[in-house]
């Protein structure tokens, strides 16, 4: 469904001196993989791993320096915004920051209707009401502004907006990492329900392997722009092949581990 072939993305830093070359940052290096339809595909990486760049490339919001990104056999990169309407309809993104991803000056109903307006899909009013219900918000939420909601509710609004054009793929970029623990479980449950209900292919990006393990069936591990490991999430979690993945799995503090005597030192023991 989504296919990346030898994708690289190089950013040029702005000049720090008049002479000398511009510093280059390799956000992604030669990354290839394929996400099949119906998968719950996790992308795990720490800061600087290139996972956010990857999301932008998949969503057609950025251009790779080399390689190709295809969606359903159609090339995504190198196309103008006009030629990307197929992607805008079939693939939607939920971003990390539940406040920053909602325009503070728009009412919730306008936020949710935005993909419909942008893509000239009729029947907006009914669809908004339907979506509010699907994500567990009351009908009067539509009249209000984002700041009047809690973090978890804002993420529900984001989900409703993403589902508005009836996409087939949902890309979630760290959707729960800014939420309180007691709210995180609700949103993860809701996400799982929506993925089931609307038969979505899910691309779930996170720095937290244990969250990915709960949500996804397949995982790709990124480090410093390179794909280091990919495979069934249970397999990767239980018997990681790459040393970095091993280190990552080991470093995650767990309640069970800690209560059975794992100390901070054990988390980093080589």
């Amino acid at each position: 469904m989504i296919k990346l072939e030898s994708v690289s993305r190089v950013y040029r830093r702005s000049r720090t001196s008049a002479f000398g070359p511009r510093a280059e940052v390799h956000a992604l290096r030669d990354v290839s993989f394929e996400i099949e339809q119906g998968r719950r595909f996790g992308i795990v990486g720490e800061s600087g791993s290139g996972k956010s760049t990857l999301v932008r490339l998949i969503a057609g919001l950025d251009q790779p320096t080399a390689g190709t990104v295809t969606f359903d056999g159609q090339r995504v990169n190198g196309r103008s915004e006009r030629q990307l309407s197929f992607l805008r309809r079939d693939l939607q993104v939920v971003f990390q920051d539940p406040m920053g991803s909602l325009d503070p000056r728009m009412r919730v109903r306008d936020i949710i209707a935005e993909p419909l307006v942008a893509q000239r899909i009729p029947g907006q009013e009914g669809r908004v009401a339907e979506l509010l219900e699907a994500v567990g918000l009351t009908a009067d939420a539509g009249r209000r502004f984002p700041h009047q909601f809690s973090g978890g509710q804002r993420q529900r609004i984001s989900l409703a907006r993403a589902l508005a054009p009836k996409p087939r793929v949902l890309v979630a970029d760290e959707p729960v990492s800014a939420l309180d623990v007691s709210v995180r479980a609700q949103i993860l449950n809701l996400l799982a329900d929506l993925v089931d209900q609307f038969a979505l292919t899910l691309v779930f990006v996170s720095h937290d392997l244990s969250v990915v393990r709960h949500v996804c069936d397949t995982v790709a591990v990124l480090r410093a722009g390179e794909l280091v490991e990919i495979g069934d999430v249970e397999r990767v979690y239980r018997s990681p092949e790459h040393p970095y993945t091993r280190q990552l799995v080991q470093a995650i503090p767990t309640l069970r581990g800690a209560l059975s005597g794992v100390t901070a030192e054990d988390l980093i023991r080589p």
Binding site: R56, A59, G60, L61, E81, S85, R88, R89, L91, Q92, V93, F95, Q96, D97, G100, S101, L102, D103, E114, P115, A118, Q119, S158, R161, A164, P165
Partner: peptide, 10 residues
């Protein structure tokens, strides 16, 4: 991010 969201909305 809301501008990014708007772009991905089309």
């Amino acid at each position: 991010e809301y501008v990014l969201a708007a772009r991905s909305a089309g």
